[in-house]
Design a protein around this nucleic acid. Structure first.
Lengths: 170, 170
DNA sequence: ATACATCTTGGAGCCGACTCCAAGTCAAAC
DNA sequence: GTTTGACTTGGAGTCGGCTCCAAGATGTAT
């Protein structure tokens, strides 16, 4: 049952990352050297596709490619998280991401307020626009300091179940 | 009780955005032309500071500067959300951000698994490394929509730098 | 009045992340 | 056997987002 393989084009289609970009990632070694067919064409397997998707996912979060390396190392190497250096980096990334989530959450709140505000005859509002703005002031009060503390969810707890269910096998 | 004002330097300190960058944002009209003192120096008020912080916040989420414009318009103009076009944009942004949050959440989960995994003594793990990897496959399985299709903004990039704090005073 | 600090401007330069060639290889299709 | 198509390479170009000058104005401290 030969494992399914893909061309670079298919990989691009599946991941939403262009062929050029995939080659570029290989060049800068964000991706390992792809296997080749006899004719020199690159061959991708599902793990490779996965890795590209992971990069894409990280990219969307605004993470620079360089910052992804430890991440991808952890992804690729099963035992990787044992290296203290790597563990630190992962922790640090985690913190950043949690911060980002909270920034994003605040923006969602902000948008919701704006949308609500723009709905003229809802009338129920007890918030004046000034108050709303005032609220937003807090956005940054909170942020400069580690948002981890404001814990949208227990940082270290078993994070089995979180609002946006996923990752748990379906 | 004259409203409190700030120099560009103070604005930079308060927002974590460099003076150069603040001027740059003004140049590209992401920020309005700042008021000036007699000597031509820029003057900032708390609303301005807030706006800069908002930009900074959005930036951290990976939003390109150009994409911020409608957003900032909504922020600046109280009645803004009435314009249907803008409302749509905001909704669309909102959706995107929610997706992003869920992507980020997955990454946090991923890191947590890796960190957990790297803690050998714990031994309690019922997850083999293969299973873990298998799980991660689901990242895209579960969120076929969010992770890959999420490309609402063509390509997000750049998050604020962590180690290279140039203007970050100690 | 001389030094400094803080601002101003315009513009050049830089870096990350692509993106787009041009020229070439190889395999199958006509 | 030549055309078509999917690939290969290396390298150049682009674009967003800063970042860093240099030259100059103004203000305060000595």
């Amino acid at each position: 049952m030969a494992e399914q393989t893909f061309t670079i084009k298919q990989a691009a289609e599946q991941t939403g990352i262009s062929e050029d970009t995939i080659r570029f990632y290989e060049k800068i070694m964000l991706l390992p050297q792809a296997e080749r067919k006899e004719n020199g064409h690159r061959v991708y397997r599902k793990e490779d596709i996965y890795r590209i998707k992971l990069i894409s996912c990280l990219k969307k979060t605004g993470m620079p490619l360089e910052a992804m390396r430890p991440f991808l190392a952890a992804s690729a190497d099963n035992a990787s998280a044992e290296y203290p250096e790597l563990v630190d980096q992962l922790r640090s990334h985690r913190e950043n991401i949690v911060n980002q989530i909270s920034s994003l959450q605040q923006i969602v709140d902000f948008i919701d307020i704006k949308l609500e505000e723009g709905r003229p005859r809802k009338a129920s509002s007890d918030q004046s626009q000034d108050e709303v703005l005032e609220d937003h002031k807090e956005i940054e009060q909170i942020k400069p300091i580690s948002v981890v503390e404001m814990s949208y969810f227990p940082a270290y707890a078993k994070m089995d179940k979180l609002p946006t269910g996923r990752l748990t096998e379906e």
